[in-house]
């Protein structure tokens, strides 16, 4: 049924992810872990089209973008040797942010009510948004309704695929306890991804969001996403050393010594 669960029917649990943009190193391990798990788990295998041909393409449930953030021009000292034009003279250097993006399991998921067949649904018990692939007609309207590009059509099965929050891992008692979290979280080598109940203010993820000022994406579109993103910490400034390697980059020997020194002096006198 594609009505969103009524507030009184919801358990209050809101399972989701908290993604730390400060520590994400952009290695794409989460992308590969997600693809690997969903190739052989819940529903139709997450397929590719023409993977070894001229125009490889495929469906993924998690993708990592990369952005450059130029600080807005402010009063104050610029970089020591004059601002290069692309740095805009801000107080901090331009920074590079890796940005993993998957389904945000929105409270008011716009992808669910648009579904004409009832394939798309949000679970009342934990808030996970799923697709019943046996009922999907592949019209694509849910992907149009999603602001985040979280849904992709499977090129071979012709049904809509999306992040399941690894619903087949998190409740799976045949897996060791430490593996009962989404594959992307389990694999992240930088511990930039956190999984938990964002509906419980006392949970570790909720605390993290509070401590670090976690933000929602595109709040103006009213989807009320559950996932939160932790903004990169203020860290780099132009004050002092701009590169920790700079001391080691000085030339070690300015003047030749020994035999080379003698040769240099002798040839210089000629």
């Amino acid at each position: 049924m594609t009505m969103l669960p009524r507030p009184e029917d919801r358990s209050g649990r809101k399972l989701g992810l908290v993604i730390d943009l400060d520590t994400c190193v952009g290695c794409h391990a989460c992308v590969i872990a997600c693809k690997g798990w969903n190739d052989q788990a819940y529903g139709a295998p997450l397929s590719d089209s023409d993977p070894y041909g001229d125009a490889p393409s495929g469906s993924f449930l998690n993708r990592v973008h990369s952005y450059e953030v130029a600080p807005d021009p402010q009063a104050g000292p610029g970089p020591p040797s004059g601002p290069p034009p692309d740095l805009r003279g801000g107080q901090t250097p331009t920074r590079h942010v890796h940005f993993p993006k998957s389904c945000l399991h929105c409270d008011d998921a716009p992808c669910v009510p648009v579904c004409p067949t009832g394939a798309s649904y949000k679970r009342a018990e934990d808030g996970i948004v799923l697709v019943n692939e046996d009922a999907c007609i592949g019209c694509g309207l849910c992907a149009w309704a999603c602001p985040y590009g979280a849904r992709e059509m499977d090129p071979s099965a012709g049904v809509m695929k999306k992040c399941t929050l690894c619903v087949d891992r998190i409740y799976n008692e045949t897996l060791p306890e430490e593996d009962r979290e989404p594959a992307c979280v389990r694999t992240c080598p930088a511990k930039a991804r956190h999984f938990g109940d964002l509906g419980d203010p006392g949970s570790a993820v909720s605390q993290l969001v509070e401590d670090r000022g976690g933000v929602a994406l595109m709040p103006e579109l009213g989807a009320a996403p559950v996932n939160r993103y932790l903004p990169p910490r203020e860290r780099d400034t132009w004050a002092g050393e701009t590169d920790v390697l700079a001391p080691w980059l000085e030339p070690v020997a300015e003047e030749p010594q020994g035999f080379l020194g003698w040769l240099d002096r002798t040839l210089g006198k000629l």
């Binding site: 973008h65 952005y67 953030v69 130029a70 595109m218 993103y229």
Partner: peptide, 15 residues
Amino acid sequence: TATGLGSQGTPRALF
């Protein structure tokens, strides 16, 4: 607003 990075400056898609 799409990335939540707007409060830090002006984001630009890098790759």
